[in-house]
Design a protein around this nucleic acid. Sequence first.
RNA 1: GCGGGUGUGGUGAAAUUGGUAGACACGCUAGACUUAGGAUCUAGUGCCGUGAGGUGUGUGGGUUCGAGUCCCUCCACCCGCACCA
Length: 993
Amino acid sequence: MEYNFRDIEDKWQAYWAKNKTFAAKDDPSLPKYYGLTMFPYPSGAGLHVGHPLGYIASCIYARYKKLQGYNVLHPMGYDSFGLPAEQYAIQTGQHPAITTEQNIKRYREQLDKIGFSFDWEREVRTSDPSYYKWTQWIFKQLYNSWYNNKTNKAESIESLVKIFEKEGNATVDAPNDQKDTFTAAAWNELSEKAQQNILMKYRLTYLADSWVNWCPALGTVLANDEIKDGVSERGGHPVEQKLMRQWSMRITAYAERLLNDLETVDWSDAIKEQQRNWIGKSVGAEGHFKLVGGKEIIEVFTTRPDTIFGVSFMVLAPEHELVNKITTAEYKEEVDEYVKQAGLKTERDRQSDVKNITGQFTGAYAIHPFTGEKLPIWIADYVLAGYGTGAVMAVPCGDQRDWDFAKHFNIPIKNIFKDVDISEGAYTEKDAVITDSDFLSDLPVNKAIKTAIFHIEKEGIGKGRTNYRLRDAVFSRQRYWGEPFPVYYKDGTPYLLEDDQLPVTLPEVDKYLPTEDGEPPLARAKKDAWDVEFDGERMEYNTMPGWAGSSWYFLRYMDPHNEKAFVSKEKADYWNQVDLYIGGSEHATGHLLYSRFWTKFLYDMGYISFHEPFIKMINQGMILGNSAFYYSTVKIDFSFFGSGRSHDHNAFERNEFLNSLLPPIFISADLINSNNVHDKILNAISKEIRSFYERFGEQDKVQILDVNTQKLHMDIRNIENDAIDLEKVKIDNRYPEFEKAIIIRNEEGKLICEREVEKMSKSKYNVVTPDTDPDTGKEGLIEQYGADTLRCYEMFLGPLEQAKPWDTQGINGVHNFLRKFWRLFHDAENNFSVSEGEPDKKSLKTLHKTIKKITDDLNRFSFNTAVSNFMICVNELTDQKCNNKGILKELVVLISPYAPHIAEELWSKLGEQKSVTTAKFPEYNEAYLKESEFAYPVSFNGKMRFKIELPTDFSKEEVEKEVLAAEESQKWLEGKAPKKVIVVPGRIVNIVV
RNA sequence: GCGGGUGUGGUGAAAUUGGUAGACACGCUAGACUUAGGAUCUAGUGCCGUGAGGUGUGUGGGUUCGAGUCCCUCCACCCGCACCA
């Protein structure tokens, strides 16, 4: 074999490991580059070809930066707490730590085969006690902090206590859940416990009764970002709202900063927009509506205070705390029933039920603060308890939902927009002029909003306010395989463990299931099963959510073995922000928001000196799998007719009987809609039909009316050119039905599958693994083509950010390129052979052109075009029969980030002693790129134009001179003076004649 | 409904500030060699046309000497959010 990638790759991977080639040194004198890819959850399925995509891009860029002289930090680790290992533990009893360890081992083997430049000295695992010690520690810091809106940062809780002691809480401006104000004197008289209860309402992580998303199937609560379309992201189980005592993170305190600082990071618009959406800032006002004949006050939030005179009713969320208090006796029964019904709905029902307008009048009325009008108070589940105040002032003329509601329940609609027709629907544009609205009349909407707020504040009935859709994040999970909280309870009050008691490690339990009383699995651990001493009745039984460990792992890489701190200040200052973060966009509202939040918090507390974790981010597109489906009959509808009988009253029975005789029938996908498929089936089941005749008599003739089929996944490893390999499938024990099945083949005698592009996943049987398949033992791409080919091919597939189906076919082209590259250095007998002397001009031009292109490609993260440009370069050098040592040496360095193994091999053959990673990335020389000067005419739409290739640095005058010279030399131009000459340096010159 | 994105051959895709559209690769066609292989090499390959030529970057329009690229219109697809007041 001329290019023996197997030996080469083994050799150099061993070399890198032995020499710790990619171990980053903390050397502040060097310019740093911190490249990071999102660390994986080590699942049991191992890596498929989609996983390494981002890692390869990250590796290429890290290697490029290293060649440019940067001190590169390119670490890797595992997000190793998580649900699948726990579910596996529940099924098998095997400790999740063992499963996780095994999975990591397999991941590591696979990763190593691809030749990544990861610094494994710095590996972190979120499930490692030496790591989650610091996750627990950060939790403690959050607990011991509050957010001061005046200084706009988090501060220690002691500073809040001091304010309380001196001034009470009236002057404190902080996000909190403390509704009532108190004086300093009142505070000082409170018991320790009462004080703690109040402080809990200010802490950045706090324990509170809150409405949470409860997923009964998973037996745990979930954060909003773990829910998609009203069902759990993992498993797709229904989710309901439940009031539970849970730990939460006060991420809402950071809403404004999380929003504004998006402008300081270089992320894709899509992700930024998703985060903006998620944060969901809306500016408006809150107002208080008094009750008719009651002292209660209904607080509402609106973005349209200008429509205050258009209010014709009020709506409360069914869960609103006032509902019980204000409902009149007359309506009590109906209201209770409505509240009950609303409570029964799952989140999904509620969402899919949007078009159904429901509601219930409470019998109570509110007073309009300006007109004194009586406004009926309704409850309806289109008002959400969790957003704003859980109550709205309904303005049917300006809000479609209010309009629909008013129409449905025959509530009068008042129009306050001048010259606007609202008979068909609400007018939601903000370009109208207000009318019939006292002091707001004749004002345009934007001015009316300001004026309305002014009056609302003046009258003391409310104030301007900003609301966010973002909710505080539930931080506890009723699970085993997660970080234990550093919290214990004494008399039902939570207390924190001391720093020197950390980490609290996960205790052993007999089962990984909840207890009979519905307590989380950790409740199974006896007090002495914990490795900490505590003065209380029990430890916290909840564990932290999956995103706890991943919210700060990028900091730990900087200083992974530090036992004194989560990261030292010096190292955090040096490595600083992640320069390039590569990962999937599915974390847009989860991980990426939480890690920004924690980074800002740690910045506020002075532990790090940057407040955004990731300067630039690229979201690699998903690699999709090409699933295969075969058609299987579910049921065949036969019709029977015999001699002298036109109608058969026993058809149903006969149909059932004949179907019961049939084995599974699989039909080639290309026949499904063909005319003769029924005949083919009849032919194929002649044996069964004979059995049928034995019972019902030969006089019946059988015809097929209809064939009901279903599509089933076929493992793509049993497929060859869209056809199922029947020999293979018969020995595949997952498809036992093929043993006895009737197969309706197409003209070529094949059973063709239908192909469809889907997400690559083990359950869809469409996975392509990069290395040898552990199930079948069949050679993988790396064994067939080598890691370098795989790396180049994954990049060649298309733009990194785009989702693309995997297609193995094209890999040959890339492999050929590497073989051609190899041949540049070797003679026909495969002996290393390069020429010393001066390179010729053409080859120099090819080289420098390529260096320029590749540098540009890398700088704009266009990894796919770079591979193409390598190919062009190697093709050209092959044509030029160039084997000049000087040229090839530069080319080797240039290619090394993409194909590091072959580059190392050639580099050493060229006589270099050290690894190619110590080389300098080549720079191009403009001088070699100078174009020869020539001009030729091109006919074009009746006009003529010159093409003149000129050096790019020519001035306007120089170009004009060249144009004149070219004109001179062109005979065809004789007698025709150019009408107009457009000159662009370095470009084509058009001359219109 | 709101927001974001994408539309270029049979396929993946190039075209960096507007400047010869389809580079590079897959696939396909024909041929060569051959110890018949899913190897290698040569030629061809946007579409229509034997040809000269015409035509062509989702649709329609505009700006320009010149538009895949800039502006407007519409269409299609993908992604995210969604009773958020």
